[in-house]
Deep mutational scan, measured.
Amino acid sequence: NQASVVANQLIPINTALTLVMMRSEVVTPVGIPAEDIPRLVSMQVSRAVPLGTTLMPDMVKGYA
């Protein structure tokens, strides 16, 4: 089972991601792979992401 990136806190719209905002977790459906966490740092979210939400490619500007 592949771990995905999950929000560790509420991430407001247009916030630049930092390591403390993200954790890896095995979830369904699968989201952005956990190994991409270093690449996500400083990228902005395109919408508010609630705590515990799996990050999907369309939620991060410039990821897809």
Rank of each mutant, 00 (worst) to 15 (best):
N1F: 15
N1W: 11
N1S: 14
Q2W: 12
Q2D: 15
Q2L: 15
A3G: 14
A3S: 15
S4Q: 02
S4I: 02
S4Y: 03
V6H: 02
V6E: 01
A7Y: 01
A7Q: 01
N8Y: 04
N8M: 09
N8P: 01
Q9N: 10
Q9R: 08
Q9G: 06
Q9C: 05
Q9H: 09
Q9Y: 10
L10E: 15
L10K: 08
I11P: 00
I11W: 00
I11T: 02
P12H: 06
P12W: 04
I13L: 11
I13Y: 06
I13V: 10
I13P: 08
I13R: 09
I13T: 09
I13F: 08
N14W: 07
N14Q: 10
N14I: 03
N14K: 07
T15W: 06
T15A: 07
T15M: 09
T15C: 04
A16E: 10
A16G: 06
A16R: 06
A16H: 12
A16T: 06
A16M: 09
A16F: 05
L17S: 00
L17F: 02
L17E: 02
L17Q: 00
T18V: 07
L19Q: 10
L19D: 11
V20E: 14
V20P: 12
V20S: 14
M21T: 03
M21Q: 04
M21A: 06
M22E: 02
M22R: 00
R23N: 07
R23F: 05
S24F: 11
E25G: 11
E25I: 06
E25C: 05
V26W: 08
V26S: 14
V26L: 12
V26G: 04
V26M: 06
V26E: 15
V27T: 11
V27E: 02
T28H: 05
T28E: 15
P29H: 07
P29M: 05
V30S: 14
V30N: 11
V30Y: 13
G31D: 01
G31P: 01
G31M: 02
I32W: 02
I32V: 08
I32E: 01
I32M: 03
I32R: 00
A34C: 08
A34V: 12
A34H: 15
A34T: 13
A34G: 15
E35D: 10
E35R: 04
E35Q: 11
E35M: 08
E35G: 07
E35L: 10
D36F: 11
D36S: 14
D36V: 10
I37F: 03
I37D: 00
I37G: 05
P38L: 10
P38D: 07
R39Q: 12
R39D: 04
R39N: 14
R39P: 00
L40S: 00
L40K: 00
V41P: 01
V41I: 14
V41E: 04
V41A: 07
S42F: 10
S42A: 12
S42W: 07
S42E: 08
S42D: 06
S42R: 06
S42G: 12
S42H: 07
M43T: 05
M43C: 07
M43Y: 10
M43A: 08
M43N: 06
M43L: 12
M43K: 11
Q44C: 15
Q44S: 11
V45N: 03
V45C: 04
V45D: 02
V45Y: 00
V45K: 00
V45F: 00
V45R: 00
V45S: 12
S46H: 14
S46N: 13
R47H: 15
R47L: 10
A48K: 07
A48M: 13
A48T: 11
A48L: 15
V49G: 01
P50I: 09
L51F: 12
L51P: 12
L51D: 15
L51Y: 13
L51A: 14
L51Q: 11
L51W: 12
T53Y: 09
T53G: 10
T54F: 03
T54Y: 02
L55R: 00
L55S: 01
L55N: 01
L55A: 01
M56P: 02
M56K: 13
P57A: 10
P57D: 09
D58N: 14
D58M: 09
D58W: 07
M59I: 06
M59E: 03
V60T: 02
V60C: 02
V60E: 02
K61W: 05
G62D: 12
G62P: 03
G62F: 07
G62I: 03
G62W: 05
G62H: 14
Y63D: 03
Y63V: 04
Y63C: 05
Y63N: 04
A64P: 15
A64W: 03
